[in-house]
Simulated assay, not measured.
Amino acid sequence: MTTVYDFSARLNNTEQHELAHYHDKVLLIVNTASQCGFTGQYAGLEQLYRQYCARGLVVLGFPCNQFRQQEPGSDQQIATFCQTHYDISFPLFSKIEVNGAHAHPLFRYLKHQAPGLFGTTAIKWNFTKFLVNRQGHAVQRFGPPAKPDTLTQAIEQLL
């Protein structure tokens, strides 16, 4: 059976990164954007990461420009923005697509493992969050309006 550990993605420094590196960790995988109404959630994601990283949580940010071009910058510009405005220390990946023919295989997998409302597999907007258990399976999906601090109970259950 496939798990998130079977995938790889390019970090924002262009290095190919195997997600198997996170084996036995709880993952919160998020499609992000720097010019979105939900961009402020970066602060909450960083807070979750700092609060729970010692217990095994890793937040993974995947910038995406598919929703009204709210992530137009280069990978370097995105990294600089995240560092300057939110002091992001969790892994940030290269910009990807999450829907359509060019969707990253990881997100195709996540969408089918944890469908949205009414069984939809499409990601509707930036800051959709997927919670992945220590076995590498997506167990819960949270829509963009779900603030990171509202995920603590679900995260703690998996830690």
Score class of each variant (00 low, 15 high):
Tyr86Thr: 01
Gln70Leu: 00
Asn65Phe: 07
Trp125Arg: 08
Phe142His: 12
Ala79Tyr: 09
Pro72Val: 02
Thr84Asp: 14
Thr121Asp: 12
His112Asn: 08
His104Asn: 06
Phe130Val: 01
Phe93Cys: 08
Pro63Gly: 10
Trp125His: 04
Val132Met: 06
His104Pro: 09
Gly119Ala: 05
Pro63Arg: 04
Leu131Ala: 13
Gly73Tyr: 00
Gln77His: 01
Arg68Thr: 07
Tyr86Arg: 02
Asp75His: 07
Pro91Met: 02
Phe81Asp: 03
Ile78Val: 13
Thr120Lys: 08
Asn65Arg: 06
Arg141Thr: 15
Gly116Leu: 01
Leu106Thr: 13
Gln77Arg: 01
Gln113Arg: 07
Leu131Asp: 12
Asn65Leu: 06
Gly100Tyr: 05
Glu97His: 13
Gly136Glu: 01
Gly119Tyr: 01
Gln135Cys: 09
Ala138Tyr: 10
Gly119Asn: 02
Thr128Leu: 03
Phe118His: 04
Gln76Cys: 06
Leu110Asp: 09
Leu131Gln: 13
Gln66Pro: 10
Pro72His: 06
Phe142Pro: 08
Gly116Ile: 02
Gln66Trp: 01
Leu92Glu: 05
Asn126Val: 05
Phe127Arg: 03
Val98Arg: 04
Lys111Cys: 13
Thr120Met: 03
Phe90Tyr: 15
Pro72Glu: 01
Phe93Thr: 03
Trp125Cys: 01
Thr121Pro: 07
Ile88Ser: 00
Gln69Thr: 09
Ser89Tyr: 00
Ala114Leu: 03
Lys124His: 15
Arg108Phe: 04
Arg108Glu: 13
Lys147Asn: 10
Ala138Met: 10
Thr80Tyr: 06
Leu117Trp: 06
Ala138Trp: 09
Gly143Glu: 14
Leu106Ala: 09
Pro91Leu: 02
Ser89Val: 05
Gln83Thr: 12
His112Pro: 01
Tyr109Gln: 01
Phe142Leu: 08
Val139Asn: 14
Arg108His: 12
Phe107Asn: 05
Lys111Gly: 12
Val132Gln: 09
Gly119Ser: 05
Thr121Lys: 11
Lys111Asp: 06
Gly73Ser: 03
Cys82Lys: 02
Arg134Ser: 11
Pro72Ile: 00
Phe62Val: 07
Ser89Cys: 06
His85Cys: 09
Phe67Trp: 09
